[in-house]
């Protein structure tokens, strides 16, 4: 179980998250909702250990393997979609490629596995980024607006697979409908104090 206790976190000493206490379940999907600037992405960065809190404590993330779909796709342009998905995997090359291929198939990208990101549309790049995050075995999957730009039918197919990728998934979204479709418990962050 992951617990955040009185966490302040932000950038250049300026907290975006203030005095946040939160307990996440061991399994399931949690959706973080809230207006712009409420610290949704900051919370994901804290959970991924990419950002250290200014103050407060976090329990249950030490040694936890984390995977993440960033707000930006962050695909490496000099690798194909398949290579991008296989790169983080700690498996022998052949197995890594087979596993990556399976996740690309789940994302309807089999036919584009050997394409470079620049040859893919925005939605395809997004799905490749999702495939990379999901293919990577992890205890915690963090998703920052992952379904942006996906049409409804595709979104549902992708969600079905994403839900199975990790024991605990934390989804940041503006879209309440996405949270509902993922069957997520909802945490609302307050609007930033002005």
């Amino acid at each position: 179980m992951i617990r955040l206790i009185n966490v302040d976190a932000g950038y250049n000493g300026q907290p975006v998250l203030r005095n946040l206490s939160l307990t996440l379940p061991e399994t399931g999907v949690v959706a973080i909702l809230g207006p712009s600037g409420s610290g949704k992405t900051t919370l994901l960065r804290v959970l991924s250990s990419l950002l250290s809190p200014i103050s407060g404590h976090i329990e249950g993330i030490a040694g936890l393997r984390v995977s993440m779909v960033f707000q930006e796709d962050r695909l490496l342009p000099w690798y194909t979609a398949l290579e991008n998905v296989a790169l983080p995997l700690r498996l022998p090359k052949k197995q890594a490629l087979a596993h990556a291929m399976q996740w690309l198939a789940y994302m309807d990208l089999s036919a584009f596995a050997h394409e470079y990101p620049r040859a893919l549309s925005g939605g395809m790049q997004r799905r490749a980024a999702i495939a990379r995050a999901c293919a990577c075995p992890c205890g915690l999957l963090l998703l920052d607006e992952p379904f942006k730009g996906l049409d409804t039918a595709l979104r549902l197919r992708v969600m079905t697979r994403v839900k199975t990728a990790a024991p605990l998934t934390v989804l940041v979204t503006h879209d309440r409908e996405d949270a509902k479709l993922m069957g997520a418990g909802i945490v609302e962050l307050a609007a930033p104090a002005i």
Binding site: L50, R65, V66, S67, F70, E72, R74, L76, P88
Partner: peptide, 12 residues
Amino acid sequence: PQLVEMARLYRF
């Protein structure tokens, strides 16, 4: 820095 951060997250 975004790509470097991605590599850090995935423990390259």
